[in-house]
């Protein structure tokens, strides 16, 4: 069985359901619109900031402020792509056609990840340029040092969040269970753990806390012990672990 065939089939599956358009569309709109809104607010409040705050003002990162909410739609996309197979029972037809379960899962995740990357990257660029336009005099330029890395990193971050969700969904198999765990975790728990001083030591290694680093241009001295790419690597390690768990679950359990 050629991998290209399975990949093509998975692409057909993804493009032929409406949830794909809804979730990815929502991710793009929420991320860019909320980023734009916060950019406008930041521009109007710039003069009220203290001198040190003005010095640390990160125009790029501010335009990505909508990512925290927009990523939730990415999570829904990732969960649905995988757990739809289980909730509908389609998994049995799929695995009867592709008995090599590793190939099946790899193809599904590759197809979904490629789409998430394209949408994520486009969203990231739109978000950046929209945010900078609204920031007016305080804007950053794409040619400034580190900015292009942050913008491309925004696309990578959205992709990795989606793929992480796919791995978790493959482990849990139920969309309700996977969303019930992932949504509150990324919306609330991770932010609390990563920002409360008592837990920050551990919390900064959580996938989203580490991954967000790639979108920062102005690095703060008291910040995490990893750089932008280090942070992304930590996130990628989480993703790899989730995928491995998903693969082992799929291989061992009866469909």
């Amino acid at each position: 069985m050629a991998a290209a065939q399975v990949l093509q089939s998975e692409w057909t599956k993804i493009r032929s359901v409406r949830s794909t358009v809804w979730t990815l569309g929502l991710a793009a709109v929420v991320t860019s619109a909320l980023g734009g809104l916060i950019s406008v607010l930041s521009r109007n409040r710039f003069d009220e900031l203290s001198a040190s705050e003005q010095l640390r003002f990160d125009a790029t990162y501010i335009s990505f402020a909508g990512m925290g909410l927009g990523q939730l739609a990415m999570i829904v996309f990732g969960v649905l792509v995988v757990s739809n197979e289980y909730s509908t029972g389609m998994i049995r037809a799929s695995l009867a056609a592709v008995p090599q379960r590793g190939l099946f899962l790899a193809s599904k995740i590759t197809a979904a990840a490629l789409l998430a990357f394209v949408i994520g990257l486009a969203t990231s660029f739109v978000t950046f340029f929209l945010g900078q336009a609204l920031l007016g005099p305080y804007r950053a330029s794409i040619s400034d040092p580190g900015v292009l890395r942050a913008v491309v990193g925004g696309g990578l971050y959205m992709t990795l969040i989606a793929v992480f969700s796919m791995g978790v969904a493959a482990m849990l198999r139920s969309p309700v269970l996977a969303l019930g765990i992932l949504m509150p975790f990324f919306f609330l728990i991770s932010n609390v753990l990563g920002n409360v001083p008592a837990t920050k030591e551990v919390g900064q290694y959580l996938p989203d806390q580490a991954g967000t680093k790639i979108m920062q241009v102005v690095q703060l001295p008291d910040d995490a012990p990893y750089g932008p790419w280090g942070g992304l690597a930590i996130m990628a390690a989480w993703v790899a672990a989730a995928l491995l768990g998903g693969f082992l679950t799929l291989r061992r359990r009866d469909a």
């Binding site: 089939s9 057909t12 359901v17 509908t88 029972g89």
Partner: peptide, 25 residues
């Protein structure tokens, strides 16, 4: 044919069969 209800309700009949067909070339 294992379970007639084991299809994604949001997918058309043709697309459902198409993705199964593509799996095996």
């Amino acid at each position: 044919l294992l379970d007639a209800k084991a299809v994604h309700g949001g997918r058309s009949a043709r697309n459902h069969l198409l993705c199964l067909a593509q799996l095996s070339g």
